[in-house]
């Protein structure tokens, strides 16, 4: 009796195994097709595979993925897979396509749980929300709905859904700014990512909250600079301690000073909002005068630490 049941289960499991292996590839293909499709819809024309050229950025604790498209070797645009948790029916995920100068090309809603016939209109082509954004540059827009004094039209009877939509686009624009306009090209981010793999992340529980100490290093003027960046839970740079450096006394060595210009410019800031270049180049970081190479190395190390922090948080979230 038990034997029969066992044999049936065995046969069932074997059959499932076979079917699983047969359908594995089509399922993968269908999933990639969905992303590729959304990319093609949202982004300006490209001839590379943007799915292989991505950087993920944590904004407000949500992973936002930026894809880079190139055409004939030139950057043709970016697509940002962004999301919000403020929808009427929970999470909304969308793909926002940007031209390199920040103009929004198109928005494809990938996933939503909004009310059919009301909020769900956000996924339809030509809806008022999309029209409010399409062809505009967010830097010229007031990113809130008209009711709240902004420039965005709302879907009738769906204010919450509309607000959530704007929230997601805004977050996407932040990620776009951070990656595309922030001076750091995607390639450099890749380098930082690789560097970040060697970084050590230590979780510190203190009375004031949970902190993440990330150790990172970069090549300075004289030998490596090693430092520990302390992030708080929402990605704010809490403090930076230099562990090792051999920089020039009086110039580069000032990075050890707890009040140095670089640290002062980024301390207390949300790392994702920062543009990783010097203020003279349009970024948000101050340099130490007379010590450009050292300052750059310092900034790079902080950037690596941030990337390591992000991937650590991502991993932690996935494990939950």
């Amino acid at each position: 009796m038990v034997l029969v049941l066992f044999v049936i289960t065995l046969i069932a499991a074997a059959m499932l195994g076979v079917v699983y292996n047969v359908t594995k590839e089509p399922i993968e293909a269908a999933k990639t097709a969905k992303t590729t499709n959304a990319l093609a819809q949202a982004m300006p024309k490209f001839d590379n595979n943007p799915a292989t050229d991505t950087v993920t950025c944590m904004i407000d604790g949500m992973p936002i993925k930026v894809y880079k498209g190139t055409l004939g070797g030139e950057v043709s645009g970016y697509a940002v897979e962004t999301m919000t948790k403020n929808g009427f029916g929970g999470e909304i995920k969308m793909m926002v396509g940007f031209k390199p100068d920040g103009e929004i090309v198109n928005i494809e809603v990938l996933q939503h749980g909004e009310t059919p016939g009301l909020g769900s209109k956000m996924a339809e082509p030509g809806n008022v929300l999309l029209v409010s954004f399409q062809g505009k540059n967010p830097k010229d827009l007031k990113m809130s709905v008209r009711k709240d004094g902004g420039d965005i039209d709302v879907i009738t009877a769906s204010t919450i859904s509309s607000r959530a939509y704007v929230d997601a686009v805004e977050r996407g624009y932040k990620a776009f700014q951070n990656i595309a306009l922030g001076g750091a090209a995607v390639n450099e981010q890749h380098a930082a990512q690789k560097e970040a793999d060697t970084c050590k992340v230590v979780v510190v529980n203190e009375e004031t909250g949970v902190y993440y100490d990330v150790e990172a290093s970069a090549q300075g003027l004289v030998g490596p600079i090693r430092l520990v960046v302390r992030f708080s839970e929402d990605g704010i740079i809490n403090d930076i301690t230099v562990v090792e450096q051999n920089e020039t006394e009086g110039y580069g060595a000032r990075i050890t000073d707890p009040n140095n210009a670089i640290l002062a410019s980024i301390k207390g800031e949300k790392a994702c909002d920062l543009k990783w270049s010097f203020k003279s180049d349009g970024g948000s970081v101050d340099g130490i005068s007379g010590a450009t190479v050292t300052s750059k190395a310092y900034m790079q190390a902080v950037q690596s630490a941030y990337t390591a922090y992000q991937s650590y948080i991502l991993k932690e979230q996935n494990n939950e």
């Binding site: 029969v4 289960t9 399922i27």
Partner: peptide, 30 residues
């Protein structure tokens, strides 16, 4: 199938078929 384990055996068979359907649908009509 002996009468006593009839129902569990049926459930296993049905669940297998449903999973097959699930995989096939996910692959071809996502």
């Amino acid at each position: 199938i002996p009468g006593k384990v009839r129902i569990p055996a049926y459930i296993v068979i049905i669940a297998t078929l449903v999973t097959i359907l699930q995989l096939v649908m996910e692959a071809f009509v996502p």
